[in-house]
Amino acid sequence: MTAIYFDHAATTPLRPEVLEAMLPYFTERFGNPSSLHAFGRETRIALSGARDRLASLLDCTPGELLFTGGGTESDNAALFGAAAKYGGSKKHLITTQIEHHAVLHACERLEREGCDVTYLPVDETGLVRIEDVEAAIRDDTFLISVMYGNNEVGTIQPIERIGELARERGIVFHVDAVQALGLEPLSLRSLPVDLMSFSAHKIYGPKGVGALYVSKRIAIDPLLVGGNQERKRRAGTENVPGIVGFAKAAELAIEAMGDNRRHVRMLRDLMIQALTREIGTAAFTVNGHPSDVLPHILNVSFPGIDTETMLMSLDLEGIAAASGSACTSGSLELSHVLQAMRLPEDRMRSAVRFSFGFSQPVEQIQAAAEKIATISRRIRNRT
């Protein structure tokens, strides 16, 4: 049985070219980049080179990139860092009900520490209304945090319009772009964004490394202290192999963005078409925005078949899919994203996320659709 992996939004396999770039920094080039001797200089040069390359790809200055331990740390560093720097006399921040838990749980902690948080609603497609953002702004609002594209349903938010509004009001704007990196054009010099989070393992890079863009227009207090690394913004010896791998993965992904976008969009469209042929449109519903959507994410409900049953059945057939965020996999709770979208109960309880990869074979789509049809008929006949 050939395994089929439809969970690229959770993580991606490490590309061979990325591993090749990383390997020397696990072995002979092992120096601490903070050391003054030749071993340290060698890795410091590699660290600077990776930062320069990533900054060039994202259209920002190298000094505006802060390397972290991943997307979660980047989100935490943005929210807690901004709160510590700008939340003195101002205690209000704005986010949405569909953010990743790295943002939502950070907001909950800030609430316990005295901040006031507005959680914006979304419509049934997962889209935030710009009018709601504007209405939520107060005189004491210091931060707005809205993700670029949702990790469960793929809906893309009006980031530029929100950013322009935030800039007009003098409010720091953070964007979680973990799912967008490598698939959406990101010019940080042009976007009205102050803080943006990234993660390497979503773009065929290593796990455990990410980055936070910190615009030179603002400053944040460090989340981690104890050393002068990362311009005193993130203490701790840098993960040089991971950072080198991150830069290489970003280079490969961004340089081939056009082809990658077309391929995963084609896979997404083919999956919808194949499901239509195999089970009919009455047997499934696509969740998320019909057009403003990340090209690699497809969230589908199979009313009458609960999510856990479908995922377990798919797994037995060698097909990996997900119920939403990988961070909440294993939890039987309903998706907070689908609840915020106020979908009917049967759609929420039967939702499955398929997420596609840059080099995924087209043939896997039809094979998976046929397996889904077999599973659907078996479960429906049983009930």
Rank of each mutant, 00 (worst) to 15 (best):
L23E: 04
E238P: 01
A235L: 00
G205T: 00
K91A: 03
Q157P: 09
I254M: 09
T309N: 15
A77L: 13
Q339L: 14
A106T: 01
Q97G: 11
F142N: 05
R233G: 02
R378W: 02
T72A: 02
R382S: 14
R380S: 07
F284S: 04
G69S: 13
E124V: 11
P33Q: 12
L195V: 03
N150K: 04
A200I: 00
V146E: 04
I305P: 04
A373Y: 04
A55L: 05
V264M: 04
V193D: 03
M348H: 06
A55P: 02
E184F: 04
L191D: 10
G226P: 07
A166F: 03
F142M: 09
S145M: 05
A373F: 11
I130Y: 09
S291G: 14
H289G: 08
A177G: 08
S323H: 15
R261G: 09
T96V: 07
G280L: 14
G87K: 00
C327N: 15
G126D: 14
E64N: 06
R51D: 02
E64G: 05
A10S: 08
L57I: 11
A180H: 00
R378Y: 04
F358R: 14
E345P: 08
E164P: 02
F80V: 01
H101W: 03
A256F: 03
D292T: 06
P192V: 09
G210E: 05
R51N: 02
E124G: 05
F246E: 08
V175A: 12
G154H: 05
P290L: 09
F39H: 13
F358H: 13
G242R: 00
F6K: 01
G154F: 04
I98M: 12
E255D: 13
